Simulated assay, not measured.
Amino acid sequence: MSLEELLPSNHGESRFYAIAIRSALVISTLLVGLAIPFFGLVMSLIGSFLTMLITLILPPACFLSILRAKVTPTQVTICIFIIAVGAICSAIGTYSALSKIIEKLNT
């Protein structure tokens, strides 16, 4: 969508360019997926690390950082618990993905 928004808004030609951009993105994704033998494992590694960071670790950390003086002890405990669960899940997922990547490299 970002690339399509850069195009001028000529009604006839913009539809053609939008289809061309989308097709080029799909084809490039296909080529990357075919070129990397264990693309799914790399995506698993990135997903396990970044998803947990963005969804479970950063929000409570930012909440505690922004509302430092107004946070109750119960809220601090809950936030620390959520951060700990996120860190543990991220570590397990990252370890699992890395071990599978290393296993694929050795075979």
Rank of each mutant, 00 (worst) to 15 (best):
R68A: 12
S44Q: 14
I78D: 01
G40A: 15
F38R: 12
T72I: 11
P59N: 07
L58Y: 02
T74Q: 09
T55Q: 10
T51G: 11
P59V: 12
K70W: 04
I66Y: 02
I66T: 11
I54D: 01
T51V: 14
S48D: 13
F38A: 08
L50E: 06
V71Y: 01
V42A: 07
M52E: 08
L58E: 07
P60M: 08
F49P: 01
L64D: 01
L58M: 14
I78N: 01
V71T: 15
L58W: 05
L56N: 08
L45G: 03
A61L: 15
F63L: 13
R68V: 09
G47T: 10
L41R: 06
F39A: 14
C79F: 05
T72K: 14
A69Q: 12
I66M: 06
P59H: 05
F39K: 06
L41G: 00
C62T: 11
L50K: 09
K70Q: 12
S48T: 14
F38Q: 09
M43L: 15
C62S: 07
F63M: 11
V76R: 15
V42Q: 10
A61K: 10
L53A: 09
F63D: 03
R68S: 12
L45P: 01
C79H: 02
V76A: 13
P59C: 06
I80Q: 08
I46E: 03
V42F: 15
F39Y: 13
V42S: 02
Q75Y: 01
R68K: 15
V71H: 02
I46A: 14
T72G: 10
P59K: 10
S65D: 08
C62P: 00
C79D: 08
T77S: 13
V71N: 04
F63A: 09
M43N: 09
G40Q: 11
F39W: 11
F49M: 07
I66P: 00
I66V: 14
V76T: 12
S65M: 14
P60R: 13
I66N: 02
L53P: 00
S65Q: 11
I54P: 00
P60L: 03
S65N: 12
P60C: 09
T51C: 07
S48M: 12
L58H: 01
I54R: 04
I46T: 06
V76N: 04
C62W: 07
I78G: 01
I57G: 02
S48F: 06
C79G: 05
L50W: 13
L50Q: 08
Q75P: 00
C62I: 15
L58R: 04
P73M: 08
Q75G: 11
L67M: 13
T72W: 03
K70I: 03
L41C: 01
I78H: 01
C62L: 15
L45D: 01
L45H: 04
